[in-house]
Design a protein around this nucleic acid. Structure first.
Lengths: 365, 365
DNA sequence: ACCAAAATTGAGAACGATCTCAGAAAAAGT
DNA sequence: ACTTTTTCTGAGATCGTTCTCAATTTTGGT
């Protein structure tokens, strides 16, 4: 298109133009070019035009890395997610990324798959990459060294969805209340034998007794369940509560175990979206029907929760608000330079749908 | 805990230690410290130990930004996703992030929400941030300037899921074949009146005639549908095909329009997971049943597709393999410095489940 | 004990921007 | 025309690394 005849084999990709190249072409000093390109200071209109033209001609793209080194800020946030693919975290990612962008930040994302070692190295790498702040969904409640003040080297952090025993900002949902509301609803509908299936990484499958080391969100849900049952004066049978270490076979086994127990619950509370899916799968596999043979309440309003039949009654996690708050808090810490460490706990609300059977004797209304 | 009595109000956070500080404390030159910390060159064991001790004492964390400036490489990949929250892309993100990490790269993620302007600026910012390469799910088929050779300034790029009319590497699924297989299956089951509901951003709702500017994946699916119908000798009624610009109201209206048309299709092909969800929602809303009143085949094996009742027959997008291939291709381009531009098209396979009714006359078997 | 070879170290220049400070040019005041 | 401002510009330091190159020390051979 440009030149016929001597068809050269694609022009060799020239080294990207630097501000020096622009300055040279515009016949001004580097400082002046920087003023124009960085839009600060005073530059004669004429000079500005020349520089801009030179930049355009060279296709100049600023090297933000170099700028960052001088400025000491990278306009980059680190986001450490425990499990990409889990509805609630996917939404969190979307909101964090979009919200950060609105504030002029980009987001470096890491996925730990609930693995502590992955989390450790991801945090280290992000610190090395000089992120201005970190949003972390911590995957473990132990080994907090790398999230301690020393480990963080003073960089602002906000924990999302899960808290730790550390003086760090955090934004979580009121998991305990959410679980209590769910149990209360089941009780209200006449259920008394209520099971609990918990999905939890890093923990060996345990039955009945509550294992130590649960991440805070799950731990609070479990506590809420027990608390609500206790308040209702119902003794929880050990066979009603099962823990699964993965969303596949282990989860299936846990659900099966509950459904096969002699004193079988009429309703189940699933600890997260993956566990809801596992229950759905197991129930479908044995040819039973949710809402009839067994009622179910899950956590997390995944996109499919409302369209399945029967639609799933869930405890909604206000993850969009949580993620937004996390970004706001983080950027507050960054810009105000104030350690505005605060813990925000947002309420969860029960969304009633069709997966809970009404066991009350027919009303005499 | 550390010191009772004079409880100082948290030690002031010292400026992070640089390699100079380490060198100074270890009483060696910056160069030697760098050799130890960077693990290259020859350093006396004794000196090494001293430096290491100094680094540990100061809690030294390398400034990778500075290293990047010198090295000209950031070990960072850019990932530009058209829509976080859509199952297929969430999986792509997970795989890209995990796979990049395995190769020693971090990933900067941007979400365009199918918006061209967002894509444009995201790419610019990532280029400025000196990513070593980009994986892009392009949101538009027009305005390719910023993905042209000039716009990219020679940085390697791999297009994922969708191609463009540009000489860039790409990894896609065989959408046309997938659509054809889906239609073929429906035909095989005795359906002849087959509808198509298309979810597509950036396009005004159009009926019947195929709008220009569809992204390649969707375009290929539409073409595959028409092609399969034509091969079967079936003329597609204009009222069978609808386009929706959003997953909410517009999608509902499109599905309604098809279901209310006089020559109502007995089966629907939904262009992506969001559209499947929209069909499910609309059908549920009108009290009809999938697999009975209307059959459905979707694209993308979202986590819920197999657990709903009836489970959804889908065209599986091999997104994990695609994302892996994209990362491999990109890193190949980066490290080999060879423009190994290649287009990979992976096959899609139909996963038969329960959402397609068998309309064939009872077999005489 | 002496010299060559090998091992170890440090000084200083990059990388690409920004920013301070002082000097030059232009504008304004007398 | 000659100061006095004001506006504009450039030289050079700086950010934290890495890396080249030369200088120095150590080792080894005789």
């Amino acid at each position: 298109m440009k030149q016929l005849g001597n068809d050269a084999p694609e022009p060799v990709i020239a080294a990207p133009a630097t501000i020096n190249d622009v300055a040279q072409l515009a016949e001004v000093s580097r400082a002046t070019a920087s003023r124009v390109l960085g839009e600060y200071g005073a530059v004669k209109a004429e000079t500005r035009a020349t520089v801009l033209a030179a930049a355009a001609e060279l296709g100049y793209v600023a090297n933000v890395i170099a700028r960052s080194m001088r400025a000491g800020t990278t306009q980059t946030l680190g986001l450490i997610i425990a499990e990409i693919g889990l509805s609630v975290f996917d939404t969190a990612m979307r909101v964090v990324i979009d919200s950060a962008r609105a504030h002029g930040y980009q987001v470096l994302v890491a996925n730990t798959n609930e693995d502590l070692e992955a989390e450790r190295t991801s945090i280290r790498v992000m610190l090395e990459k000089q992120v201005d702040g970190l949003i972390v969904v911590p995957s473990s409640v132990t080994d907090l060294d790398f999230l301690s003040a020393a480990g963080l080297r003073g960089r602002p952090v906000v924990l999302l969805d899960r808290t730790l025993a550390l003086p760090l900002s955090s934004v979580t949902g009121d998991n305990r209340q959410g679980a209590k509301d769910a149990v209360a609803h089941l009780l209200d509908r006449g259920h008394t034998k209520i099971g609990l299936v918990v999905f939890t990484a890093n923990i060996q499958g345990a039955t009945g007794e509550r294992p130590a080391g649960l991440i805070s969100s799950i731990n609070d849900r479990v506590e809420g369940y027990y608390e609500a049952m206790a308040q209702a004066g119902i003794e929880v049978a050990p066979s009603w509560v099962h823990y699964a270490g993965d969303a596949g076979e282990s989860a299936r086994a846990a659900v099966e175990a509950i459904l096969n127990s002699e004193n079988r619950p009429t309703a189940l509370l699933a600890s997260n979206a993956n566990m809801s899916l596992a229950v759905l799968r197991a129930v479908k596999a044995r040819g039973a029907a949710i809402g009839q043979d067994v009622s179910l309440i899950g956590f997390d309003d995944a996109p499919w929760a409302s369209i399945i039949t029967p639609s799933l009654t869930i405890v909604n996690i206000p993850i969009e608000a949580m993620a937004t708050a996390a970004v706001d808090n983080l950027i507050g810490q960054i810009s105000a330079d104030v350690r505005s460490k605060g813990s925000v706990v947002l309420p969860m609300n029960l969304v009633l749908r069709e997966s809970v059977a009404d066991l009350r004797p027919t009303s005499t209304l």
